[in-house]
């Protein structure tokens, strides 16, 4: 059984290394004021916000819905490429001009939505940094030990999640997430339509044809199950079924046990 974990996908060591790197970067920032001395924490607002925004842009990309070519995965160590809404290997160039137009429109819309998302990342990062500095107050000294740095880190995580939560619960953000998903899905459907055109040209069955066959098969299964239920529900039919010769008996020419069934 394939899974993103067991195959070339998620690697906990890679995720850990990425998180550790980000942690070290934060420790460096926390240590910027001279250790042990009362610090002017407000000077950290801009670098903290900048780092966080960069991380949000890189890790959240266009939200969980879309991982276009070159877009980093949502979580470090999680392989991109297995996404439903990613572009097919067949680019817009493979389609007819009029068909490609719709794809280009969708790609443009996606870029525009990603731009809107970036505004939110910026807002979240700025709020998180300001909140962090405000919570530290003016009297706090720069950390002198790992334990003190860790306390700062935990505070930073709380501030970051609070700022993130405040924005992502808002209606406009939720609407944007849905629009991103819908545009990504529309792009995928459009690209598959192009692929179908090519498939048809080679005389291969298309998705629609396979789906139609599946629908027929499903309907036949349903009818068979209904028939089976009715047969089981009817005692007369049940006893007749019992009396019918088995396949093996029919093959060997022997009669099955029980009374002979009427023809």
């Amino acid at each position: 059984m394939e899974s993103p974990f067991s195959q070339a996908g998620f690697r906990p060591d890679a995720a850990f290394a990425a998180a550790a790197e980000r942690f070290f970067e934060l420790l460096k920032t926390f240590g910027m004021p001279a250790a042990g001395r009362p610090a002017d924490w407000s000077a950290l607002t801009a670098p903290l916000a900048g780092q966080f925004e960069q991380w949000l842009r890189a890790s959240q990309s266009a939200g969980p819905w879309f991982s276009g070519s070159g877009a980093p995965a949502a979580a470090p160590g999680l392989a991109a490429g297995a996404w439903s809404f990613g572009p097919l290997p067949l680019g817009p160039a493979a389609a007819q001009t009029h068909e490609a137009q719709r794809t280009f429109e969708l790609l443009a819309k996606l870029a525009q939505l990603q731009g809107q998302l970036a505004v939110h990342w910026s807002e979240i990062a700025d709020t998180a940094a300001r909140r962090f500095v405000a919570r530290l107050g003016t009297g706090a000294a720069a950390p002198v030990s790992l334990e003190q740095s860790l306390k700062l880190y935990e505070l930073w995580v709380s501030c970051a999640e609070e700022a993130y939560g405040a924005t992502v619960h808002k209606e406009d953000f939720s609407r944007l997430q849905a629009e991103l998903a819908n545009t990504s899905a529309a792009l995928l459907v459009e690209q598959r339509r192009h692929a179908e055109t090519l498939v048809r040209a080679f005389g291969l069955p298309t998705r629609n044809e396979v789906d139609a066959l599946y629908a027929q098969l499903k309907e036949l299964r349903r009818q068979l199950a209904e028939l089976d239920d009715r047969t089981r529900a009817s005692p007369a039919a049940g006893s007749a079924r019992k009396a019918a010769p088995s396949r093996k008996a029919r093959r060997s020419g022997k009669r099955a046990r029980g009374p002979r069934s009427r023809r």
Binding site: A15, A19, F23, W65, A75, L78, A160, E161
Partner: peptide, 22 residues
């Protein structure tokens, strides 16, 4: 499944993709 994973992680990204490793 990867898309759903990413969706669940995006609910609390700093805690779920950073803090637990730290």
């Amino acid at each position: 499944g990867e898309l759903l994973n990413a969706l669940f992680l995006a609910l609390m990204p700093v805690r779920l993709t950073q803090q637990k490793y730290v």
